[in-house]
Amino acid sequence: MEAQLTTGDWTDPQRAKVKLGDYAAKWISERTNLRPRTVEIYTGLLRRHVVPHLGNAPLSKIDTAMVREWRATLTGNGVGASEVAKAYRFLRAVLMTAADDRIIPRNPCRIRGAGEEEPEERPVLTVAKVFELADLVPVRLRALILLATFASLRWGEVAALRRMDVDLNAGTVSVRQQHVELDTGELLVGPPKSRAGVRTIAFPSAIIPALQDHLDDFTDPEDDALIFTGARGGTLRRSNFRRAADWAKNTTKIGFPGLHFHDLRHTGNTIAASSGATLRDLMERMGHDSVRAAMIYQHPIAEADRKIANAMNGKIAEVLPSKASDH
């Protein structure tokens, strides 16, 4: 023990007897900076994938071989590759803390590439298909489809937009907050998922008429009124949107069965990337963290961002000339 103390390899034998399931649950509860949705995700991973296999194992007994066997068991039970990677990253983070606290000598999660995800390739719609889908859904949802796509917005971001967030004269939308729906059904309103998520985005002028019509017909006049709401004026939830838009039927009708709402953002990102914008410009537009640690949403729209919107406008005009000439 004296030698271990000298070399820094000493671990606490009493704390090492703690069961992984108990330690991981405490690990989640002690991270007060986690977002509610992240807590929900971690708790689910712990309940579904960690506790049934490793929950009763003392921390001191968990080694790399056991972790490797656990991971293989999950895969063998039909758990998807992405879910297995998430569970592994969660376990690795928990045990890294145990190692940092000198409860165990080192983190046993040492399987190369086990935490990496290779998500399936998602579909990219053509501009014509975006407008086709927008024309199929009820008119009160048409502008939502167009803005989510051509401003590269996440569902929670577009659902939280208020009248004051859209400037039709400047052709911009400001993302200040987002809606987060928990598995319990609770709806939370908070800041975007990262500091870079607070941003102001230029959108193509071709969609301004649709936005103007929507604001006139479906949005209350107050500055803080939600732009997109349910048929009765309530907060628009993802499930309500899917039903109202007849999403499964209409996405199949345009030739994209199984399309996710997030694929609209993916489509917008792809179109933006094809405009020749730099990586930094794209990351700012998409609301991703970059070398610039923080974003100020009031920051003026960069010239490069306006070029992105203009390039989108040109692509829309090529496919649907009437759409770009309406304004």
Rank of each mutant, 00 (worst) to 15 (best):
L144N: 00
V139H: 11
R142W: 00
L125W: 06
G115K: 04
V124W: 02
I111L: 15
P119L: 11
V139L: 12
V137P: 08
T126S: 15
E117Y: 03
R140D: 13
L133W: 05
E120W: 08
E132I: 05
A143F: 00
L136G: 06
A134V: 03
I111V: 15
V127M: 10
D135S: 15
P123N: 08
R112Y: 11
C109K: 03
P108S: 04
V124C: 01
E117H: 07
E120M: 12
R142K: 15
E117M: 15
R142N: 03
E117W: 07
A128Y: 09
R112K: 15
V124K: 09
P138L: 12
V127K: 04
L125Q: 00
E121S: 14
L141S: 05
V130E: 02
V124Q: 08
I111S: 07
K129F: 02
D135I: 00
G113E: 10
V130T: 11
V124N: 02
A134F: 04
P123F: 05
A114S: 12
E117G: 06
L144G: 03
L125M: 12
I111H: 10
V124P: 00
V137I: 14
P138A: 11
L144C: 07
A114Q: 09
A114V: 11
P119K: 12
L136K: 14
L144M: 15
K129W: 01
D135C: 02
K129L: 08
P108H: 02
E117S: 15
R110F: 03
F131N: 03
A143N: 05
E120T: 11
E132R: 11
F131P: 00
A143M: 05
C109E: 04
V130F: 08
E121H: 13
R140Y: 11
E118A: 13
C109P: 01
E116M: 11
E117L: 11
V137S: 09
F131W: 13
E120H: 13
P123R: 04
E120D: 14
L125H: 06
P108C: 04
R112N: 09
L144F: 10
L141C: 03
C109W: 02
L141H: 14
E117C: 10
R142H: 09
R142Y: 01
A128S: 14
R112P: 00
R140I: 06
V139R: 14
R112V: 13
V124S: 01
G113R: 13
V137H: 10
R112C: 02
A114C: 12
F131M: 05
I111G: 10
E121I: 14
E132F: 06
A134K: 01
P138H: 08
D135F: 08
G113H: 13
R140A: 07
E132D: 14
P138F: 09
A114E: 06
V139Y: 07
E120V: 13
F131D: 01
T126F: 07
R122G: 05
L125Y: 03
A128R: 15
T126Y: 05
E118D: 13
I145R: 04
T126Q: 14
A134M: 03
I145S: 04
E132V: 02
I145Y: 01
A143R: 00
